[in-house]
């Protein structure tokens, strides 16, 4: 039985299905993402977690034979409404990818890019302010303050990923989607990004897809476990990792399959 979308949730999914051509990739997913929390999506490869993530900012629109059905709302507003401006939606819903992908531009211009195209700054001073604040929030400012005009691609992997987070923050999103943001990083850079995620949730809502169950345990407050396109279990992260209710969740997180 499908319930009504929750108005309390930042993002609310009800009976969301995704087909890639014949393939039923996501099956009847009901899931609420709470505001100012980190929600981790875990599950074996092909379980649908990234597919679900990409529904939230309509990245699946890019995929030719993808078809999304069901109700998906952001603050009660239908994300798939015909009147929705997808560019505006993606300003509200930022995204950070698996591999850091800075533009081949300076560090400053990487962060300034979003505010410029969305016209968020009236003059240079305001733009400077946005860039500096975003770099600060991303925990990168002290490391790059003296070389803002150097190319973003010259930074280390971990710094590049934090630059991408700064770039996402610069357009003041409400929700940040992260698709395995640490899988290309070493443990120290990973710890820095995890600390950053912990700090960011005060002001943002975060959904993170991760292959690392340990990372899900460390960074999230809620965890959703997907398997073969179905949402098997969603609960407080502590509950999932100390006393999961579904045998499939138990099997996956204890390394018995997947």
């Amino acid at each position: 039985m499908t319930h009504l979308p929750s108005r309390l949730a930042k993002v609310s999914a009800r009976d969301v299905n995704v087909h890639y051509g014949e393939k039923h990739a996501l099956k009847h997913v009901d899931l609420d993402i709470r505001a100012n929390e980190v929600t981790a999506l875990i599950g074996p490869s092909g379980c649908g977690k990234s597919t679900f993530l990409r529904c939230i900012n309509r990245m699946n629109d890019q995929i030719e034979n993808a078809h999304v059905s069901g109700a998906l709302t952001l603050d009660g507003q239908d994300i798939y409404d015909k009147g929705i401006d997808v560019v505006q939606l993606r300003a509200r819903v930022g995204m950070v990818f698996q591999k850091p992908n800075p533009f081949p531009k300076s560090i400053f211009d990487n962060v300034a890019y979003g505010p410029r195209i969305h016209g968020l700054a009236r003059d240079q001073a305001e733009l400077d302010e946005i860039v500096m604040t975003s770099l600060e929030k991303a925990g990168l400012l002290t490391e790059v303050r003296d070389r803002l005009d150097e190319p973003g691609t010259g930074l280390s992997g971990g710094q590049q990923q934090r630059l991408c987070i700064a770039r996402a923050i610069a357009v003041s999103p409400e929700l940040i989607l992260m698709d395995e943001p640490c899988s290309a990083l070493d443990p120290i850079a990973t710890a820095k990004v995890e600390e950053l995620i912990d700090e960011l949730r005060e002001n943002y809502t975060i959904v993170i897809v991760t292959h690392s169950m340990q990372q899900a345990a460390r960074v999230s407050q809620r965890t959703a476990f997907f398997h073969l396109g179905e949402l098997v279990e969603v609960a407080d992260t502590e509950q999932i990792f100390t006393n999961p209710q579904h045998p499939l969740t138990q099997g996956y997180i204890t390394g018995r399959f997947g």
């Binding site: 340990q214 345990a217 460390r218 992260t237 502590e238 990792f241 100390t242």
Partner: peptide
């Protein structure tokens, strides 16, 4: 402690 063992590894 159970929480820390499970969540912080």
């Amino acid at each position: 402690t159970v929480r820390l063992l499970a969540l912080r590894q």
